[in-house]
Amino acid sequence: MEGFLAATIVASTPLLFATVGEIVTEKSGLLNLGVEGLMLIGAIMGFVTAFATGDPLLGVLGAAVAGAAGGLIFAFLTVSLRANQVVTGLTLTIFGAGFASFMGKTYVGLVVPKAVKSFFSPVSIPLLGDIPFIGPVFFQRDVFVYFGYLVVILVTLYFYKTRAGLNLKAVGESAAAADASGVNVTLYKYVHTCVGGALCGLGGAYMSLVMMSVWQENVVAGRGWIAVALVIFASWNPIKAFVGAFLFGGLSILGFRLQSMGIHISQYWVDMLPYAATIVIIILSSRKNRKENQPPSDLGIPYFREER
């Protein structure tokens, strides 16, 4: 069981980064459906950078920068040029898939450099790692996973304790009110879309650098879309995103687990589970009514100050 939960943490990390990234973006009122594309861009750029430099941190940085660049394209089109957010997001996904597939053409089947691999091998956190059960599951993982924990904590503090977090909420809830109060709406939207994109890119990089540690076509395999659904499940709360990512991480590796336990269900049926579960989740989420659980009310609506 411990082993399964530990593997779940690994499987959930890309979802966690992507979900938190999309939450950051959506909090600013932009619905970026290009998460899948951003993850792919991050996955390949992280892999290529790490492969070329042999430096794991540069790889991670490369993924974040690439994801942020994807977010920037999205922000420019939807904020400055007021393009339709849904279609722009879909285009970003199509573009990202093509980009990753092209860039990765010569890398297919190649393994990440040793230095990178050892950098991302599990390390136990002193004290925390020694706690029975909890330690081995949560605190004997790799540094990338710990970085994920840190991101959740930081984003949570940022959302609920800082003034910028308050301004961000206002931008997503009512851009007009935020603008009239002196908040730079355009800047907030750009920054948070880029940061969100960077986090999605990191989620992709975790897939290519740590989880698979070998480049393969379409490495993200729909996780970006599951992340979009998890945002709804988490009702835009990073802590709940952690829970959601954990649940879905578990589902995604359930097949291996069942097979190793000698239970034989077709792999393809088990593979359907996370997708089917996502559907169940969005159906259940649609029944929420509390005001605090609602999406930002300006989500998907472009803002133009001089619009009359």
């Binding site: 040029l81 285009t91 093509g98 597939s101 053409k105």
Partner: peptide
Amino acid sequence: ASVADMIQGIILFFVLGSEF
């Protein structure tokens, strides 16, 4: 062939932008 995919994405980015 993925180059063609990318070109598709780029064309659509521009057309989306041109609506503005």
